[in-house]
Write a protein that binds this DNA or RNA. Structure first.
Length: 422
RNA sequence: GUGGCUGUAGCUCAGCAGGUAGAGCACCUGGUUGUGGUCCAGGAAGUCGCGGGUUCAAAUCCCGUCAGUCACCCCA
């Protein structure tokens, strides 16, 4: 803390031990769920042609108008660090003709996303999410499947405070009528300039405004549910029934809308109260028209993205014990250079036998090294000094009981693996 | 882009009717010529975010600036 150091760019962060292990555990828990359900792993570039997001996410969205990291390459291409995953994955599916094979195509992915926003709790310029998409079916079973998988991922992590919030925006056929009705209603209100502009560009998003005066003004606004076609209604009811049968509680929220334009019908969010103002730990919905927006064929889809950092924050807020700490089995303590050479070999053999082993280096004193052994959380300490070398012995100390026994060098590896129950 | 709050040791913070810095935890050493977790003793560690101003004297007051943080707009 003396010289001017480099710092992580605004809104970004480093995941450092031991907390970083939580991040890994969160990703793993999410990945485990989708793998079990037959999703295939897909990776796409961290940046895409800017036009993909403008067309896919929607020209009038905040993401596109003010949150994109866009730049022009040396070759003159306009590219953007991806602010979300669905449009890129759909692009990749179409480009690789995945939709020409068996449908539906089920894909999952994990990676970094970028949005140029003012940072606050749970909202950063660089964040990571795990996503899943089901392409090529309108079956409400896929909507429900995804929601159940996400909830099971949260549960697997030990989280209890997530709520599922659900809504239906209606299909491309029924939504426009609602849009118009809502717009008419909103025009009758006394709104600030920015909000009034939003009424014209995308009235649904006004429903999402958190300001109390706006929410109060929306009390008598028309509700989507009244505009759903019979087919939309059936679709939505089926999703609800499947969730109920799966034992996944949910709340209907007719005000739920999301900031991306491509959503149709099913829309959902996973919310948690321990995150401050950014309460969504994950969210998603159906996007039956997105493929066509991108110039592709009719290819309905549904998907979600789960925020890795926000999930970690939620776990911390609940006080769930942080999963996945790196545990050691053995910590080797040499006394002097000769002993160090001997134990180096033992440590290598132990690791090759699958035993998690660390060793004191730098010629620390015995006391200091034992302290390090204790802090490492290892089950056993291996102590070797000149006397032991002379007698071909390793002192194996059980750090829990404090008991210690001498074992010959040739027996150490099998002795330790046996006592660890490997 | 707008607003509130905060910047003192590795971490969490105290000190702010101005007199050139403290605690707890962590770390290192010793008490035990070869043994951790408890205890005891000692030690190392800070241009008090940065710049300017007021003053005999500024961590403390004033101005500016940067950074962090929380919130709004919106979202993972």
């Amino acid at each position: 803390m003396n010289q001017p150091l480099f710092a992580a760019p605004k809104g970004t962060f480093d995941h450092v031990p031991p907390r970083a292990e939580t991040i890994l555990a969160v990703r793993d828990a999410m990945a485990e769920q989708v793998r079990r359900a037959g999703f295939g792993y897909i990776e796409t570039p961290s940046f895409e042609e800017t036009a993909l997001f403008v067309r896919g996410v929607g020209e009038s969205t905040d993401v596109v108008t003010k949150e994109m990291y866009s730049f022009t390459t040396k070759g003159g291409d306009d590219v953007t660090l991806r602010p979300e995953g669905t449009a890129p994955v759909l692009r990749a599916a179409l480009e690789n003709n995945l939709h020409r094979g068996a449908l539906p195509v089920k894909l999952w992915y994990s990676g970094s996303y970028y949005r140029y926003e003012r940072p606050q709790k749970g909202r950063y310029r660089h964040f990571s999410q795990v996503g899943a998409e089901v392409l090529g079916t309108e079956d409400p079973a896929s909507d429900a499947e995804l929601i159940v998988l996400a909830v099971d991922a949260y549960r697997a992590l030990g989280m209890t405070g997530v709520r599922v919030v659900l809504n239906s925006l209606g299909s491309e056929e029924s939504r426009p009528a609602y849009r118009e009705a809502l717009r008419e209603y909103l025009r009758g209100l006394d709104l600030d300039e920015q909000t009034a502009a939003r009424v014209e560009a995308n009235p649904l998003r006004v429903l999402d405004d958190k300001r109390p005066e706006i929410q109060a003004a929306l009390a008598d606004a028309p509700v989507v549910a009244d505009f759903l076609s019979p087919a939309d209604r059936t679709h939505h009811d089926t999703v609800c029934e499947l969730l109920a049968e799966a034992g996944v509680p949910f709340e209907q929220d007719p005000r739920l809308v999301r900031g991306l334009d491509y959503y149709t019908r099913t829309l959902f969010e996973f919310v948690h109260d321990g995150l401050g103002s950014q309460s969504a730990v994950g969210g998603g919905g159906r996007y039956d028209g997105l493929s066509e927006l991108l110039g592709g064929p009719r290819l309905p889809g549904v998907g979600w993205a789960l925020g890795v950092e926000r999930t970690a924050l939620a776990l911390e807020a609940e006080g769930v014990p942080l999963p996945g700490q790196n545990g050691l089995d053995v910590y080797a303590v040499p006394l002097g250079g000769e002993a160090s050479r001997h134990l180096f070999g033992v440590a290598t053999e132990l690791r090759r036998a699958g035993v998690r082993t660390d060793m004191a280096v730098g010629g620390r004193g015995l006391k200091g090294a034992m302290k390090a052994a204790d802090r490492s959380g290892a089950r056993f300490a291996l102590v070797v000094g000149e006397r032991d070398i002379a007698e071909d012995e390793v002192q194996v100390k059980d750090l829990r009981s404090g008991e210690q026994e001498a074992v010959s060098f040739s027996d150490v590896v099998p002795h330790v693996t046996r006592r660890l129950g490997h």
